[in-house]
Nucleic acid binder design. Sequence first.
DNA 1: CGATAATTTGATCAATATCAAATATCGTGG
DNA 2: CCACGATATTTGATATTGATCAAATTATCG
Lengths: 208, 208
Amino acid sequence: MYTPLQRFIDLLPEGTGKPRTLSRDEFLFRQQAPARAIYSVVSGRVRLFRDLPDGSSVILYVARSGDTCAEAALFTTQYHCHARAEVDTQVIGLDTEVLMRHISADAAMGVELSRLFAAQVRELRAMLTLRGIRSADERLLAWLRLKASGERMAVELDRPWTGISEELGLTREAVYRSLARLQEKGLIDRRGRNEKGGGELICLRRRS
Amino acid sequence: MYTPLQRFIDLLPEGTGKPRTLSRDEFLFRQQAPARAIYSVVSGRVRLFRDLPDGSSVILYVARSGDTCAEAALFTTQYHCHARAEVDTQVIGLDTEVLMRHISADAAMGVELSRLFAAQVRELRAMLTLRGIRSADERLLAWLRLKASGERMAVELDRPWTGISEELGLTREAVYRSLARLQEKGLIDRRGRNEKGGGELICLRRRS
DNA sequence: CGATAATTTGATCAATATCAAATATCGTGG
DNA sequence: CCACGATATTTGATATTGATCAAATTATCG
């Protein structure tokens, strides 16, 4: 997957990104440890969580393929949470010092990084707003509309619904049922299902 | 409220931030219009939404007091969504050109902006993860843990529960009931309720 | 002191989570 | 190319829980 971060990394000198492979349950870094790198997840999953003074912990995020994590480590000396691979995982690490040197020396680089983060913020806010929609049908529809592109208002899926349902904050069953209802009502049209490519195409009915 | 953005604005030359007052339903800016400024909401609410080719629209975000909006406009020539005041609202606008000039000329400024956005990203991801917790009790507890500070693991509220319930994605009734249950179980201790300051203090029981 | 907003508890409803199970698809190795 | 196991898709039955609707009480703020 060619992510915005990948594009950014390509602006940096050759070899700045260092791949690392993690086994299930292996720590990528620990809370309080000196912040050495920020990461981009290539495959697998990394759980970020924080240990609290009372002995409990909170999960902050689960970074998946294509996600970045620990960006904030750029601006601190220590990690403020643990990062542990939930399954076998591959990441690319970017040394914070190197990165900071670049963005401090080259303003254009800082601007690029800001752009990257700003896009993230926009995306995350949209997702958060989406989660505020109670009805499963409305939520799914809103998701499709956010993802739809082009005059045709079509969405090409890049992964199974099972994965998308997590992003939606719904169970897969609820999503399949919503899909059925939306199709029933003629609000969407599912094409290219059951075909080799796997990439189903959802078209939104031109209306409302 | 003294937000991180405010701190950032203070780094800019005097008078860069331009206050603007909006009446209910007034547009702050429109989709496709040239991007002239990014904004910080001082009071009131601004709804960001996008019109789609099929005639429908999606809400992207509702920015409230202390929130910023349209940061991404820094990097585009046009706004990609509408922004309209839901109630009488005050904002501070930062001219995109001025801002871009500063961060392009002064790397330290770009770094600051990146830091600002990175913090936002972290916060938003945590909130999104929180929304993934189905149980109202668990969700509220996780929220308290995220907000809790100090060895005492205490949270000082800066607004009524009614407002917090929205952040949690629950109705206020559900939140009050969860509070009652958590207190019942001895997981939290509500102090300073019914007192002038209004700032209730919630202490998490040292355990688990 | 009156009005408005916040807190709180009760009753009921509706919707999604769960649990189950069947079919279909995909990827892999033979 | 096919068999087989793992994953995804789909539908059904049921349970649970938070949303809703109501209403009473208590703060907060001019």
